[in-house]
């Protein structure tokens, strides 16, 4: 630091790079000595724990037997690993089928959504179609629409074409 000030006429470049570094180092040292940064860290960790708490409670009770739950409440740490609850849920709700439905729907949405977007984007971006700003605005508005403004007609349409309440296989 002393050498920097000792240089008679430092170029703008030299001052620009060296001074902030030295001041940064000074500040770093100050912060390392102080407890301030530990208080900030503690507060940030407390926020993180509050965010995590519901997950912890969920996991804690997923592996707890009903009798233990009624005896010790939702906050106790389970004494043994109880897997029957998860197993019952898995078979009773036919979870594999639910999971498959999710995979199937997401895959269809991903493929067809991308395909549609690709075609539209090609016309708008590469073809520079006239009125493209309006088309983009229309898509934006469509994105903002509440589903309730569409759901009843969609429900009605599905009923009319026999899609409603039928296993389409």
């Amino acid at each position: 630091m002393t050498t920097t000030t000792a240089v008679p006429a430092p170029t703008p470049d030299a001052t620009g790079t060296r001074r902030p570094q030295s001041s940064r180092r000074k500040e770093d040292a100050r912060h390392k000595r102080g407890v301030g940064r530990w208080i900030v860290l503690a507060l940030a960790v407390v926020v993180a724990l509050l965010m995590l708490a519901p997950f912890v409670i969920m996991v804690l009770n997923a592996f707890k037997s009903p009798s233990e739950y009624s005896q010790d409440g939702p906050l106790s740490i389970p004494t043994q690993l109880y897997l029957d609850g998860v197993q019952n849920f898995w078979t009773r709700t036919n979870f594999p089928q639910k999971l498959w439905n999710s995979v199937f729907i997401s895959a269809l949405v991903a493929v067809f959504g991308t395909l549609l977007s690709l075609l539209n984007a090609y016309a708008i971006g590469v073809g520079r179609i006239k009125g493209r700003l309006w088309i983009v605005t229309l898509f934006l508005v469509a994105n903002m629409l509440p589903q309730e403004a569409l759901i009843y007609p969609l429900f009605d349409m599905a009923q009319q074409v026999g899609l409603s309440n039928s296993q389409c296989r």
Partner: peptide, 24 residues
């Protein structure tokens, strides 16, 4: 010539958003 590329999107838009919204 780029207009046909908008057709699938336009059809989907009308069926899923435009027509239902108008009906609503």
């Amino acid at each position: 010539p780029y207009l046909p590329y908008l057709i699938p999107g336009a059809v989907a838009f009308v069926v899923v958003i435009g027509y239902p919204f108008a009906m609503n």
